[in-house]
Design a protein around this nucleic acid. Structure first.
Lengths: 235, 235
DNA sequence: CATGTTTTTTGACGCACATCAAACCCAATT
DNA sequence: AATTGGGTTTGATGTGCGTCAAAAAACATG
């Protein structure tokens, strides 16, 4: 999986490589921020408001969501990240709970000495290339979401969402047909560009058709094949 | 502006830095492809179908669009690029014309010797950092689009689209209030997640309100302030 | 200029999804 | 057990935008 240059056992985040393209001044502010806040809990943001920094983290445990804010207050969830994945390409926020553990409730961001990108890349050229791969993958995933938001209807979106979740669970050795959603309907709706009622209705409809079994946040995919066909034709 | 490591005067693309994260085999295929096709015209794709490569190009002249394809044939325009900007993070396609010149009609892709990323980064460490900036900027822009697709209504999207175009023209010393659209309504619709009729209606409506003046593909923004407010409240 | 083709605009209509509102479920608290 | 509150589901109603269709404008070609 992802090769991080440092990690700690009591923390659900490992610092992979940071920072990317920061000025000397930004470096200092980031330093200060890290000194001020060593722990974060549910509902906290790693970096608040205007303090956006480009740092990369590998997730050890727990789930995260990334989001963006519009001037007028509207927000949108731009992605969900889980163990083994990467966050930090933009503003990072976390107000989700870990379905499995309470890891996020009182976890501590690892304290690591900062290292400039140049130093890192001199030392570990392969990590540099790795970074590129990670970032381009992020772009590809975003583009998938754009297709979803741009040209899919409600039930197709929900089906696609469930399928990618299923694949991601399978990729880390967990059951692809039975899992707990770590995010609320609100977040799913925001991510898919739908209202919570529509998300809920889609779930109910799939359940009525015997494709999935929903109970609050626990999901069981009972007919994976039909879920897959639902991505292309929701009627 | 963007610092490219090579460019040519007869070509509307400059190779900036390539390739990123390709295997030896992919390198060879890219080589072959470049040997086969030296020129491209309107409607051509730089790299077709499954031949996706991660190479970066700086645009000298002309306009481009990037797009993704769904399995079932649906496509979506994921971005528009113009002179001075970067393309190549994913599949590149071009079937737009340059509003100013006929550059795209019979242009030639520069022939440059390939250089592995490692070599490049050894030689030009600043370019490496530059690459990161470019890619993260791309991600930020994509996220803007996600907000647009996820939570804006039709007229807000069109207004936002016109405003970013205006800004981009202004950024390169051209008129921010009067310009030629280099893309069709079809492409705009695909990009904004709307049907062409809806795009057209939005244009007409803005024109009726005296905010813009449309005549085919030439646009004049007559009331920039009201166009800006239209992004937040389209009614 | 006449003619055919493509792009854009405009109108009428229907549906998918948002909106509004109320009920329900579940967990935490007293 | 009763209460409170957040999250979820379900129903009724409205509307924004897609769909279908046709006219108009822009563009291309002989």
């Amino acid at each position: 999986m992802l090769q991080s240059n440092s990690s700690c056992s009591t923390c659900n985040l490992a610092e992979l490589c940071l920072p990317v393209g920061l000025t000397e001044e930004e470096m200092q502010r980031l330093d200060e921020l890290r000194m001020q806040k060593h722990s974060f809990s549910r509902g906290d943001y790693l970096y608040r408001g205007g303090d956006k920094f480009r740092a990369l983290f590998a997730i050890n445990r727990g789930s995260f969501k990334t989001r963006i804010l519009h001037e007028d207050g509207r927000e949108q969830v731009t992605g969900f990240q889980m163990g083994g994945e990467i966050i930090g390409l933009d503003a990072i926020s976390t107000d989700m709970h870990d379905g499995e553990a309470v890891a996020l409730e009182s976890s501590v961001v690892c304290e690591l000495p900062f290292q400039r990108l140049e130093t890192l890349s001199r030392d570990i050229p392969s990590l540099q290339r790795h970074l590129h791969k990670i970032m381009s993958r992020e772009i590809v995933r975003d583009q998938g979401i754009m297709l979803l938001l741009g040209s899919m209807r409600a039930e197709e979106r929900v089906a696609a969402f469930l399928l990618t979740l299923s694949q991601r669970y399978a990729a880390r050795g967990l059951s692809p047909t039975q899992f707990q959603l770590s995010m609320s309907r609100q977040d799913i709706g925001s991510y898919l560009g739908l209202k919570i009622e529509t998300v809920s209705r889609a779930f109910s409809h799939f359940q009525d058709k015997g494709i999935i079994a929903v109970r609050a946040r626990s999901i069981e995919i009972t007919d994976l094949a039909r879920l897959q066909t639902s991505v292309n034709s929701s009627c």
